[in-house]
Amino acid sequence: MTSQTFPLEPAPITGVAKITTTRHCWMQCRFCDFNHFTPVLFDTKITSCLPLADAESRLATMPTSIGLIKIRGGLSFREPFTYFRSLVRAVADGFNGPIQAFSPIEVNQWHRVEQRPVRELLAELKWAGATRLGPGGSEILVQSWRDRLSPYRIESAAWENLAQLGWETGLPPSAMILAGKWLSAADIKSHLRILAANSWHHIEVKVFRAVALQPELEPMHILALCRLVSETRETLNDTPIYVNEPPGGLSHDARILLTQAGADGFYTTLEAIEP
């Protein structure tokens, strides 16, 4: 029984404005809130993505404490790539900080749907004002879990290659691990080993929150989360680790425990802009 030392204050907390283009996604990842099934048929009623005018008016009244803007969305077949490019452009016009726009999953979709080269799409995102790529698609890179939880995703090797192209364009890619209770110690190890094979701008540890009607998918306990963060710190020793807080945020104690485990910062959502 030894006393441990703790930081008195947690690592810096970054206020995030999260812009969601649409809450519908055809990919049906089971851990995701956006997995309402919306078959793509001729008479499907899906509301369109966030209108640009709405995004602009909401951005004008954004609190000044925002340190990062994340743009993400479900995968939509309705809007062309130019819509997403314009959205990034509109956001970049009113914000000087970092903009984490979309992820290899969306880039892959545009690539497949519009038949355009990936490098070209990335370059246009960069031109529009994005500063880095989000970690979407790397929630779990262990293939057996990928098959169970997000079977329609591209394979993890393809995801990694796509993400690494971001370095060429000047959109540093990031990766994450979704902290769900279903991961065993061995799963975490192999996920981290896959991540350690490449280089990342930062790693996000995303605190999973329960999804409706899926009691088998449980969030991770705070003590298990601390173990996960310290293991990530040991495996990827010079990549910054950010803990992505669930809605409502973490408690002060939880932040201190995670800082002690090796987290370099916290992302907490201050503003959610949704259609």
């Binding site: 099934f37 048929l41 098959d147 169970r148 079977p151 009691p215 088998e216 998918l217």
Partner: peptide, 20 residues
């Protein structure tokens, strides 16, 4: 609760996920 196996995919039917 056990996490179920991946849904079988039959691309000749719509919707192609057996879950729906």
């Amino acid at each position: 609760f056990k996490i179920s196996d991946p849904p079988p995919i039959d691309v000749h039917r719509i919707p192609f996920s057996s879950r729906f």
